[in-house]
Design a protein around this nucleic acid. Structure first.
Length: 302
DNA sequence: TAAGATAAGAGGGACAT
DNA sequence: ATGTCAGTCTTATCTTA
C-alpha cells in the first residue's frame, strides 16, 4: 500500500482517503470503497488545478495529452459526412478540398510505417500495464523511450513486443520502480533474454543513465511477500550497507543479494524461514542465496 | 525435510586475435 | 568479426543432518 503525503480526495465521499492498490493499480477510497478504474482516470478530462492552493477552478480541461497515445492524444477526425456546420451539403469545390484534407489527415495519423509501428507498440504497452501494475508516469517514460528507439531505427528487425517490454523495463529502472526483468517477461510473454538483449541495446544506444538498482529497495519488496519483522528488515539493510562499503556487492544480482541478506538476518534473529521461501519470494534460486550467503557471512565475522 | 555440495550449461562482458 | 576467458546465475541431482 502506497500512502504519500498528498492523498487526493474521494470524488464520492470527499474524504482525503484515495489510495492506490498495489496489485491492480486502481485508485480506491479507503473510507467509502469508491473505485476509480485506471481507464476512466486516464481518458477523462483533466481537472487538475495549477493554482498553488489546489483551488476549485480548473486551469484546463479536455482529454489529457499523453505520450502513451501514438499521436499524443492530439488527433482530430474529420467527419465523413459532407455537411457543413449547419448540416447543409457542401459545395462541390469545398467537397473535394475536404476529401483531400481527409486523406492527408488519416495518412498523418497512422498510415506511415513508423506510426503503425508505434500504434501497435503502444497497444502492447497498454496491455502490459494491466499485468504489471505500473504507474502512469512510468508508462509515459516507457513510451518516450520507445519513441526514441524508433527514431534511432533500433526497432527494425527486432520484435515490437520485445522492444516495448524492454522500454518498459528501462522506464522501471529509471524510476526505481522495483520490477524485475522476469516480471515483465512473464507479463509480455516474451523470453527474458530477448528483453534483456533489447534493454541492453536501448541502454547502450540511447545512452540512458540508469540508477543502479539498490538491493535495499529489493529488501522491502521481498519482505512484503513474507512476514518479516521491522527489526529483521533493518538488520538485513545494515548487512547490505556493509557489503556495499566493502564493494562486495558489485556485479551481483541485487535481488539475490537482498534475499540472502534477509536470510542472514532471519538466522541471526532466530526467525525460522527456509531458503526456499525467500528464494521464491525474491525470484532467485536457493543456490544463489547460498552463494551470496557465504560471502555475506564471512564478512559479518570480522 | 531443509540445507549444502557439485556439475553442467547459458548468456554476456572484456580482451585479444 | 570471431574466439577465449573469468565470472555469475540457473537447473538438476545427490548427500548430509
Amino acid at each position: 500500500m502506497v500512502v504519500n503525503n498528498s492523498v487526493p480526495s474521494c470524488v464520492r465521499c470527499g474524504k482525503k482517503s484515495m489510495l492506490i492498490d498495489d496489485v491492480t493499480g486502481e485508485q480506491f477510497c479507503a473510507k467509502c470503497g469508491f473505485v476509480v478504474s485506471e481507464k476512466a482516470d486516464a481518458s477523462g478530462p483533466e481537472w487538475r488545478s495549477f493554482q498553488k492552493d489546489g483551488g476549485s477552478d480548473p486551469a484546463r480541461t479536455g482529454a489529457p495529452s499523453s505520450l502513451t497515445i501514438h499521436d499524443m492524444g492530439l488527433s482530430t477526425v474529420i467527419n465523413p459526412l459532407n455537411k457543413d456546420a449547419s448540416g447543409k451539403p457542401l459545395a462541390a469545390s469545398m467537397k473535394s478540398t475536404i476529401e483531400r484534407l481527409r486523406t492527408w489527415d488519416s495518412r498523418s495519423q497512422a498510415h506511415q510505417p513508423v506510426d503503425r509501428n508505434l500504434r501497435q507498440a503502444l497497444g502492447e504497452l497498454n496491455k502490459l500495464k494491466d499485468k504489471v501494475a505500473i504507474s502512469a508516469n512510468v508508462l509515459e517514460k516507457a513510451a518516450y523511450i520507445y519513441r526514441k528507439a524508433l527514431e534511432k531505427k533500433l526497432v527494425r528487425g527486432r520484435s515490437i513486443s520485445a522492444m516495448i517490454a524492454a522500454s518498459l523495463y528501462a522506464a522501471c529502472r529509471d524510476t526505481e520502480t522495483p520490477r524485475t526483468l522476469r516480471d515483465i517477461a512473464d507479463a509480455a510473454n516474451v523470453k527474458r533474454k530477448d528483453i534483456a538483449r533489447c534493454y541492453r541495446l536501448l541502454h547502450h544506444e540511447l545512452e540512458l543513465k540508469m540508477p543502479v538498482v539498490d538491493p535495499i529497495q529489493c529488501v522491502a519488496r521481498i519482505s512484503s511477500k513474507l512476514d518479516i519483522t521491522e527489526k529483521t528488515k533493518r538488520y538485513a539493510i545494515k548487512v547490505l550497507k556493509d557489503a556495499q562499503e566493502r564493494k562486495e556487492s558489485a556485479g551481483k544480482d541485487p535481488m539475490g543479494l537482498a534475499a540472502s541478506a534477509l536470510y542472514l538476518s532471519c538466522v541471526k534473529n532466530g526467525v525460522s524461514v527456509t531458503q526456499r521461501d525467500i528464494a521464491e519470494a525474491a525470484g532467485v534460486t536457493e543456490v544463489t542465496i547460498r552463494n551470496r550467503y557465504k560471502g555475506l557471512k564471512t564478512n559479518q565475522e570480522d
